[in-house]
Design a protein around this nucleic acid. Structure first.
Lengths: 104, 104
DNA sequence: AGCCTAAATTAGCAACATCTAATGTAAGGA
DNA sequence: TCCTTACATTAGATGTTGCTAATTTAGGCT
């Protein structure tokens, strides 16, 4: 593999690794699994569902937002989050198929 | 979801997140992609293929070994590594399908 | 306006990750 | 035995992560 190929490979691997880094945290993975399961959820719903504080949950959502992995719409005081990136939806499906085959 | 369900969910998410954390590093992801592509490779091969020092490459391999994601067999002075966990093989295939559809 | 709830943001700290440089170990060859 | 090659390991500096606590912003209600 020549230098240009290595750089292209490294660049793409870096992008994908950045996404996987976001999933490589228990709290964020739980958030994304919940969103995949429920379709949409508020910050409070998510915080309770994963057993984390409001602040910590919000900070995790900020990271996911920064990579355009999730989006939200406002309804009054409540923000409803959802998975925004279809590729991430596919990845979450794959993860479920591989690591949660035993779960209904 | 009751407390027992949350704990089971958290436990499983933690296990999967630990694996994804290993993939969430450019160098390690490149190593695993190379192993998936080549089937088997030596430490020196991998270090050169990803443009990293021998030491850093070896330390990444040590982390992957610790989670039983890769294994190796010795042939003289050379250690030949390969992907050991079939679920990780499936995950790498999925990642390739999702994020590298444009690559031959 | 004043108050409440929902969520975001900031500051700060402890824990963790990742590199380089140096050293150790194992195997083969002269 | 001595040297070389292939790889592992350790030590240490530096950057990053993920929490809590405190504060701020936004919206709805009386």
């Amino acid at each position: 593999m020549d230098t240009a190929d290595l750089q292209a490979f490294a660049a793409r691997a870096g992008e994908v690794a950045d996404i996987l880094k976001l999933l490589g945290n228990r709290a964020r993975l739980m958030i994304l699994c919940k969103l995949a399961e429920l379709g949409t959820a508020s910050v409070g719903d998510l915080a309770e569902a994963i057993g984390l504080s409001q602040s910590a949950t919000s900070q995790h959502l900020a990271k996911l937002r920064a990579e355009d992995i999730v989006s939200f719409r406002r309804d009054g005081q409540t923000l409803w989050y959802e998975v925004a990136d279809p590729r991430l939806g596919r990845l979450l499906d794959s993860l479920h198929a591989i690591y949660c085959e035993d779960i209904t």
